[in-house]
């Protein structure tokens, strides 16, 4: 028996919004430590890794490890049926071929359940090596989303250059060129507005704007985003989900032919 309950459906809607543009389907691996999903996008350029810890749920029970392959488009249709303040419970029997989403209104007067067929997905888990990154940038997630959106107008690729002075995002194409420089903030009213840089070595890497823009769909999950970079390895874009876990996106860099 698997059962996981969240007080607010909003968080699950936001999580789905953060992955459904990149992935058509995904396998949710459930164990007593929580729920994990790891999947590559169709073109195998990026990897999504979602971790939701069991202690972050209002209720969590997982008697036997189960892997639930879900069509994320179908899951999105079901979650659209939940109000933001509904409680959501995800339930499955051991060895079941369906999963049930139950939504309860705050006053418990409306209860709906939606059963969805599970899929058998060929899942291939990739090993992600432990890496000491040369540069780790933390910045407001909305600022990162804005920069990705703005620079994507100029080119399909974006250069990210990180030094101890700051981080620079650049794009150039037929229209011209664009540069956005962010310096480390000295003092801020709110922690969420801070830009901080931990640098061991300066790094310059090129990435596809299309994927960066897809990652920024996770912005509603967290006020801050963390970018971890080293030369010639995938970028990690991490959004923490308060008290519940995180979503990490890995993006392979572009290289000079």
């Amino acid at each position: 028996m698997f059962e996981a309950r969240l007080i607010s459906a909003t968080i699950l809607k936001k999580i789905l919004d953060a992955i459904k543009d990149l992935l058509n389907e995904g396998t949710f691996d459930c164990s007593d430590s929580g729920i994990q999903l790891q999947a590559m996008d169709n073109s195998h350029v990026s990897l999504v890794s979602l971790t939701l810890r069991s202690d972050g749920f209002d209720k969590f029970r997982c008697d036997r490890n189960i892997s639930m392959g879900m069509n994320l488009g179908s899951m999105a249709k079901i979650l659209k049926c939940a109000n933001n303040d509904d409680t959501v419970t995800i339930k499955a029997q051991d060895n079941a071929d369906t999963v049930t989403f139950m939504f309860e209104s705050p006053n418990h007067e409306k209860v709906s359940d939606y059963e969805m067929k599970l899929m058998n997905l060929d899942q291939e888990h990739l090993g992600i090596p432990e890496t000491d990154y040369s540069c780790v940038v933390r910045m407001p997630s909305m600022e990162f989303a804005r920069i990705c959106r703005d620079l994507a107008q100029f080119s399909e690729s974006m250069l990210i250059c990180c030094t101890k002075e700051g981080v620079k995002f650049s794009a150039s194409g037929d229209v011209g060129s664009a540069n956005v420089k962010l310096a480390q903030t000295s003092s801020v009213d709110k922690e969420e507005e801070a830009v901080s840089i931990e640098m061991q070595e300066p790094v310059t890497l090129t990435f596809a704007c299309r994927y960066l823009n897809a990652f920024t769909k996770a912005s509603p999950l967290s006020g801050q985003v963390q970018l971890s970079m080293s030369a010639d390895v995938p970028l990690v874009v991490e959004y923490r989900i308060q008290d519940l876990g995180h979503i990490r996106y890995y993006l392979a860099p572009k290289i000079e032919d």
């Binding site: 350029v45 090993g127 390895v233 890995y250 392979a252 000079e256």
Partner: peptide, 14 residues
């Protein structure tokens, strides 16, 4: 000209 690498050229199947 830049070319896009695949994530599988960095991370191998477990």
């Amino acid at each position: 000209k830049m070319s896009q690498r695949n994530i599988t050229s960095f991370f191998k199947p477990k």
